[in-house]
């Protein structure tokens, strides 16, 4: 899945960078060359990437919760296996992304502490509840669909480890998106109750998914430098529009209605136009007042705390082994 808030303002004081190094760096970016961990980079670039990559990693980890809510109630063995496997992929994405962030000189523990302390953000979408089984298919179809729109350009982002992680992640995300769409299709063509379930899920997830692309370009901060440094490659509105144009016909094909009375196709532009997005809701959810923000953090903290003794045991055992090995080596040498 996906992290947003790519437009968060960089609040740290800007450092005066060496103009020669900066010019070389920018030329590198402009030529679409990759920046690797040991290359020189401006401090603001490093900071922006640590924030973006770690937010993305946190989103993968928190995103396991809403889907995990249905693992034990999945309605068939096939769906149960698919869902376990999808969530497992998300844990894997979290791992690659934390590893990519670590190449920038920050540890997974530090990043995790920031998340648990409420200092780091994750995608707003995971603060919505999964109320019915149809939400699981809908998340695959829409949330993963939106994630792909955002992440395909990130496969070409300037920072090498992030871009390589994204290539693998995108392959898995597009698989999840197809599986999700197929799951919704089965519901849409199923019993009247199943179809109603699919429509209800679309009604609840449509607008939050459009918000995943972040605030409109007119008020989006911080884009210009990110664009120049090839951290970001398309504007929020451009990606959102791409998603809408791809998704509306998919919904129609399923016989489902997009919950937007203002939705219309503009023949001249060839694009679907939507009604107003409730940006107050978006701000509220980002500020911690979504339906599940508190619950998600509580569960994550509990998992971390309940696992502390396990992690301590693993470390203690590894140290014991290392000591024994050393002692045996010494004895052999004598």
């Amino acid at each position: 899945m996906y992290a947003q808030a790519l437009d968060q303002k960089d609040k740290a004081p800007s450092r005066i960078e060496d103009p020669v190094k900066l010019a070389a760096f920018e030329a590198h970016c402009a030529a679409d060359d990759k920046i690797e961990p040991k290359d020189w980079m401006p401090e603001a670039y490093r900071r922006t990437l640590v924030r973006q990559v770690s937010q993305h990693a946190h989103s993968e980890v928190i995103g396991m919760q809403p889907e995990g809510n249905w693992v034990t109630r999945a309605p068939s063995l096939k769906r149960k296996a698919i869902l376990i496997s999808k969530i497992q992929d998300e844990a894997g994405h979290g791992l690659y992304l934390y590893s990519a962030a670590e190449t920038l000189g920050v540890s997974r523990e530090e990043l995790n502490d920031q998340l648990l302390a409420g200092k780091a953000k994750y995608s707003s979408i995971f603060n919505y509840p999964t109320l019915t089984w149809a939400d699981i298919g809908t998340i695959g179809w829409l949330v993963d669909g939106a994630a792909i729109m955002n992440q395909i350009p990130l496969c070409r982002t300037s920072f090498g480890p992030y871009s390589r992680a994204m290539i693998r992640i995108c392959k898995e995300e597009s698989f999840h998106q197809r599986q999700g769409y197929e799951a919704v299709m089965v519901l849409a063509r199923g019993t009247p109750e199943q179809k109603a379930m699919a429509q209800d899920a679309l009604n609840r997830w449509w607008w939050p998914c459009l918000m995943m692309f972040g605030p409109p370009d007119a008020v989006s901060e911080h884009s210009e430098t990110s664009m120049r440094w090839r951290i970001k490659r398309f504007s929020n509105d451009a990606l959102r529009q791409k998603f809408i144009d791809a998704t509306v016909p998919q919904a129609h094909f399923l016989g489902l209605t997009i919950p937007d009375p203002d939705l219309r196709f503009n023949e001249a532009s060839g694009h679907w136009e939507i009604g107003a997005i409730d940006w107050d809701e978006f701000k509220r959810v980002l500020a911690g007042e979504g339906p599940c923000n508190r619950q998600r953090m509580k569960v994550r903290r509990a998992a971390h705390e309940n696992g502390a003794w396990v992690r301590e045991a693993a470390l203690a055992h590894a140290e014991k082994r290392a000591r024994r090995k050393q002692a045996a080596a010494l004895q052999a040498a004598e």
């Binding site: 396991m64 889907e67 693992v71 969530i87 497992q88 791992l95 569960v299 309940n306 696992g307 396990v310």
Partner: peptide, 18 residues
């Protein structure tokens, strides 16, 4: 599968799912 999202480490999350 009841462990989903509650495992002690991310690596173990993946292992338990497997």
């Amino acid at each position: 599968s009841e462990w989903t999202a509650h495992a002690p480490t991310l690596e173990e999350e993946i292992a338990l799912a497997n």
